[in-house]
């Protein structure tokens, strides 16, 4: 039977990773990750390329299930329920934990249908027009698109497309918003808009953002996790691990690990 997550009791920690190891085939990609994600705050994952921060993020809503050879050891829990338990349906997980991707990826549909897609596949019974409007408003896009809801999503600029993706995700009303480098394809002005939006959204949502941009992590996040990668015995192999997880101000001003200090001061990565 599929477990209904919505009936669970809320806990102080929204998502918890306990000694998580991730394998692709026989290769260990990320090892020994422990994390406690607090509710209604922005948690940033930073670290050099290949450190596994995106991989970890995608485990939180089971999007890695699509990759052949993916295997996870340890436990990832959502309000104390194991996300990888046999009786958990990944589709229902994704209805609670939404995702915004690196590249803006609207569907080849109208702006309206893009936002209405999630509610439709989730059998939303309320007023769809109102939901589309409120989602677009919360994503700070309504004023720019209210006169052209029937136009294709691709007709928008990159920054608008990314806000459309955010509107599309929050239309399903998830509890957690995963953002995988949401600003890396955007210009500085669009980036700033998304960052302001994130600060508004955290009153309602728990946000986890992967970013390459340390200033961005310092600007928007409350908590920061620094990941690093080390070479393995194999030729060219790399395995990611969590170095330090703490309040953002602490990570950027007085980190306890030397590697963190080196990374945030720009000495490597």
């Amino acid at each position: 039977m599929t477990q209904q997550i919505s009936t669970m009791t809320a806990t102080e920690t929204v998502i918890q990773a306990e000694n998580v190891n991730i394998y692709y085939g026989s290769n260990l990609a990320v090892r020994n990750v422990f994390l406690d994600i607090p509710p209604r705050q922005i948690t940033a994952f930073i670290g050099p390329s290949g450190c596994g921060k995106s991989t970890i993020l995608r485990c939180f809503n089971r999007l890695n299930d699509l990759i052949e050879g993916f295997r996870l050891q340890g436990r990832i829990t959502y309000h104390n329920h194991n996300l990888y338990a046999k009786d958990i349906d990944p589709v229902s997980v994704r209805r609670h934990i939404g995702m915004v991707f690196q590249k803006p990826n609207p569907f080849p549909k109208t702006i309206y249908d893009n936002v209405a897609y999630g509610p439709r596949v989730n059998n939303y019974e309320g007023n769809l027009d109102e939901l589309v409007e409120s989602s677009l408003r919360r994503a700070a896009l309504w004023d720019e698109v209210k006169d052209k809801l029937g136009e294709n999503g691709f007709s928008l600029s990159g920054g608008q497309q990314q806000r459309l993706s955010i509107a599309r995700t929050i239309a399903v009303d998830p509890e957690v918003l995963l953002m995988d480098e949401p600003c890396s394809a955007l210009d500085p002005i669009a980036t700033l808009k998304i960052e302001e939006l994130m600060k508004d959204l955290k009153e309602k949502y728990t946000i986890i953002i992967v970013t390459h941009n340390m200033q961005q992590a310092a600007r928007v996040s409350d908590m920061t996790a620094f990941f690093n990668a080390e070479a393995t015995a194999e030729q060219g192999g790399k395995v990611g691990y969590l170095v330090e997880f703490d309040e953002t101000t602490k990570i950027f001003t007085q980190p306890s690990q030397e590697a963190t200090q080196d990374y945030v001061s720009g000495r490597f990565g």
């Binding site: 589709v91 229902s92 994704r94 991707f101 990826n105 569907f107 080849p108 897609y117 596949v121 989730n122």
Partner: peptide
């Protein structure tokens, strides 16, 4: 089709068949 389309649809809680019929085939 770009893999992001499929991921976006699945990420919104669509089933695999929903994704195929509502997003992938129209695209």
């Amino acid at each position: 089709l770009p893999p992001e389309l499929r991921q976006a649809s699945l990420g919104l809680g669509a089933t695999r068949w929903g994704t195929i019929f509502r997003v992938l085939i129209p695209a």
